[in-house]
Design a protein around this nucleic acid. Sequence first.
DNA 1: ATCCACTGTCATTTG
DNA 2: GACAAATGACAGTGG
Length: 391
Amino acid sequence: MGLNAEDNLSAFNMNLLMPDLVDTVESSPCVHCVPHPEHLAGFDVNCHSCDITPSSFATSLEGNDMTQEFQTSPSSLFLVDKEEDFEDEDDHPLDDLLDDVAMLDDIRLLDLALDEGFSPEMADEAYSDSGLSLDFSHNSSSSLGGWYPKDVKKVFPANYEDRKLFNDFSWQEDIDHDHTYNQPWFSASSPPSVGKMPTKHTKSSSRHGNVRPYPYSYRQISKTDAFSRDEWHAQALKIPFSNELIVNLPVEDFNDLLTNFQLNEDQLTLIRDIRRRGKNKIAAQNCRKRKLDVLQGLEDEVSCLRRHRLWLLQEKQEARKKLQEMKRQLDVLYQEVFSRLRDENGRPLDTTEYLLQVGSSGNITVASHQQDALLPMRGQKNSKKQRGKKK
DNA sequence: ATCCACTGTCATTTG
DNA sequence: GACAAATGACAGTGG
């Protein structure tokens, strides 16, 4: 397994940047908004999508699924200690990060325990002489979920008192005498029976049969941390892990978890369903966020292209003005040069009879309207042939 | 009552 | 082929 809290932390940090941020960095800068360097000074498009600023990074970070998940619902991580979580609602956001680290640490500790060959039998052996006449509910066939170690604090390392990895069940109750359950949907004294589970949301039942699948709203779940259907179901089947753990554990560790704990078929099925639904829930959130990002990117690109078009039109207009000015200046120059030209008799050239021509090599000649170039300009060499033509 | 945005879920596709 | 992630579609909910 080798799951390491630091490794996970770095993986989480990578996740903070991927894939949305990378997408943003790679796709957002609008090439159309980048004019030629020489025009940079006069070209201010204020392109939103090209604005890769720290704030845009912050936005990407805020959009991260894991952080978002933990930030918006820190107390939804685990089923246990709900009341404590409610009391912590106003805590500093930093606490959420600490919670994340704590959970990673918990996962690592669980790995250690599993790596070291933790088994119910070993636990039973180790603590059978503890003096506590507590039954080690080692009953794999039990519908209550198989065995559960009575003193998980000994099985798992010392700081495991928060019991974040596991649901609060009787085997813990016996030790901690903590009867504070937060069960808004049913009385703690009368735990839910499987038969009273909320109707499963299926296409065949709810989509076509108009059957309301949940006894509560989704929003209610996220806002009040009330039990979701899966949490409700997990509680009923005495699943010994929190749904957050089931969903967030790496594949390998998840499989180890299923193998190392004796769970009945119903529990295994439910755990797999919880994991699938949990993963898909996160995937759907990512998917929707991506879709919005893509949409935003396209809108930014459109506005960039509009600005670029405007800029090109202005450039075209300026070029046209410059061209007209150059033509005017050329005309003035032409008139001045032509007015200084004289024929063999020292008389000015008739503009109706002669004109100036610029050759391909840049040499300027005087040509007749009827004939080609006749006179080379002063300082320019011309062929004898042309000289001869002049006469 | 109706609309709309949001969300969880399932089925299916994609990698 | 198995698997997880991505995605479209649907339905329930609250504002």
